[in-house]
Design a protein around this nucleic acid. Structure first.
Lengths: 126, 126, 126, 126
DNA sequence: GTGGTCTAGACCACT
DNA sequence: GTGGTCTAGACCACA
């Protein structure tokens, strides 16, 4: 799995890392038990600060996507669930994005199709 | 149309305003030609600074949802379209959100249903 | 000659009026001695304030494009010349506009062609 | 590259900054990848407020002349193109200026010469 | 250190 | 009255 960082994006680097790892899990590129590259490794690969990588990893740990193994370092875990709070946040995040698309004249089916296409890229093999 | 600001949120106030106005347009609460409350009016209603409101309005102007009428002030304008750049951005915005839901074990249909429900609240009667 | 006012432009209305009258002169639509519509007339035609029209007319008078005739009201005059101050201002106004076009990758000939096309619309019949 | 601000001018300070940076790019003084002075640096150099500088930078970002690099700050980016909208705006901006010159009795060649001279100062060597 | 957000308040331009 | 510009200064997020 290959990370790609956009330094000129307005999305913070740690968020980019976090998002791409979650996407990697959704796509099946990262499986439960996989060892993540070390913080040091990842930071030097991209020429970014250790803190930045650590922040991404720690957030993922908090959300249940990673856990820390004494010897292996950060390891992929699927310990994140969609509780009510998450569902609520999900709707709150989606609403403005979908509203924007709709207000620009896109048809509901058209927008839904895009969501569907994205979802269909995710692997359902568990 | 009623705006609601969450001061404790980590979403910038101007983004909250911007999003709610776009949602208002999608929901049919705001129609082309409607005059927005004046910058100062809205600012004082919420006890926030006029620059914060202005930033929200200006972003909406840049996106084509508002325009400035020399006499009426800010007016709803539906001059925003879904060009290729927007579609690309839309996918880029949706991907991490949907990936997160999927990686938490939600089924594709379940996620899609949520998108559908949100979209169905939008008015399609113009 | 027909004026067209854009209320949603960021160009002040009095400037729009002023510019269009100067363009009318350049295009030969307005000739020396022509009587302008009265301030009241023009203002009510467009539903704008008397002051706004008066400001446009007065600026044109100051520049030598109009003069006030006791009975005829504002009359077209060609009493404006291109002195050194004007040439200097002309260059100062053109520079950022042309620089912008050039910095966007337009070729010098391409830009010049646009200037030429505009100029060729002007009538040289004096 | 040296900026010069005229405080007495009726041209807003942020516009002056913006124009001079675009001119700097056209003249070849600023090249793709160059790092701009920080907002606060530039503001203190000229004794103006950082918001004024930020507005200029942000407008340039919107037009594609600058972008924000997460580590380097604002960086010169040549991501601005001359699409149809721009050409239309260009003509709309040029028309009143050229009309004014022409209505003051300048010959078409004379005016064109001035445009040419300005354009020839711009560097065409990338 | 960088930029991003927000405030409080002033003065001006336009209609 | 409207929006537009500018200031002075604070606090936060990011790397």
């Amino acid at each position: 799995m290959l990370l790609k960082i956009e330094f000129e994006s307005d999305v913070p680097i740690y968020t980019q890392i976090k998002n791409q790892i979650i996407e990697g899990i959704a796509l099946g590129l990262l499986k439960e038990g996989d060892e993540m590259p070390s913080i040091r490794q990842l930071a030097s690969d991209f020429g970014i600060n250790l803190h930045t990588v650590k922040k991404a990893y720690d957030l993922l740990k908090d959300e249940g996507f990673l856990s820390v193994h004494r010897r292996k370092g950060y390891v992929v875990t699927k310990n994140a669930f969609a509780d009510d709070d998450f569902i609520e946040k999900l709707e709150k995040d989606l609403q403005p994005i979908l509203a924007n698309a709709y207000s620009r004249g896109m048809m509901q089916d058209e927008i839904l199709k895009i969501c569907e296409d994205i979802l269909h890229k995710f692997k359902n093999e568990e």
